[in-house]
């Protein structure tokens, strides 16, 4: 028998969010853990650039690598590269002490765009998102009310937010409320 199981991200966005909030398509996501002293050699061996400081991001083609802790990276990539990456990690298993865990379906990604994007995040997130303190390219974990988020600034007026799957509808409702209010202003 051959089956094609339908993927669902567990969250539906209201029409009124069009152009302001979009749900990102399925992504390949890995939690990658490696000690900082092994970072450079690891990068050389596998060709995946790892940022060297918490809060930094490296983008190569579809690939984004966020450094969120002293030895912790979130790697987001094209789902078609799943096998390629898996093999790459397997080959390195004997050479380096590191850990990879597939979290592709753990997270849901939102893209927030437009002049109101930072303000929309600030309805629930206490971080200062001015360009001076949160420049383009910065990433960090933080909170959005009761949800933990990963926040990344793509552009001056574009952010990517990641949260765990079961928190995504809750966040979407916040965005909807915000857009309803701000349409009427």
């Amino acid at each position: 028998m051959s089956y094609k199981l339908k993927s669902d991200q567990g969250v539906i966005l209201a029409d009124l969010l069009a152009g302001q909030v979009t749900l990102m398509a399925d992504q390949l996501r890995y939690s990658l853990r490696i000690k900082s002293q092994d970072r450079t050699a690891f990068t050389k061996a596998c060709g995946i650039d790892l940022p060297n400081k918490i809060g930094q991001t490296i983008i190569q083609n579809d690939r984004m690598v966020f450094c969120v802790g002293p030895d912790e990276y979130i790697l987001i990539d094209n789902p078609n590269l799943r096998e390629t990456l898996k093999q790459k990690f397997e080959q390195l298993a004997d050479k380096f002490v590191f850990s990879t865990t597939d979290i592709s379906h753990r997270n849901i990604g939102f893209k927030l765009s437009g002049k109101q994007a930072a303000r929309m995040i600030n309805i629930g997130c206490p971080l200062d998102l001015s360009l001076e303190t949160f420049p383009v390219g910065k990433c960090t974990r933080s909170v959005f009310e009761s949800a933990e988020i990963l926040i990344f600034r793509n552009k001056e007026d574009e952010f990517q937010l990641e949260t765990w799957r079961s928190f995504a509808p809750y966040m979407a409702r916040y965005f909807e409320k915000f857009c309803l209010e701000n349409e009427s202003l």
Binding site: I54, P70, L127, S142, V143
Partner: peptide, 18 residues
């Protein structure tokens, strides 16, 4: 809500994260 300097992030961050 306090601001707490995380010695790893090297940043002052809001208490709610801690």
């Amino acid at each position: 809500m306090l601001l707490i300097r995380c010695p790893y992030c090297q940043e002052e961050r809001p208490e709610i994260e801690f």
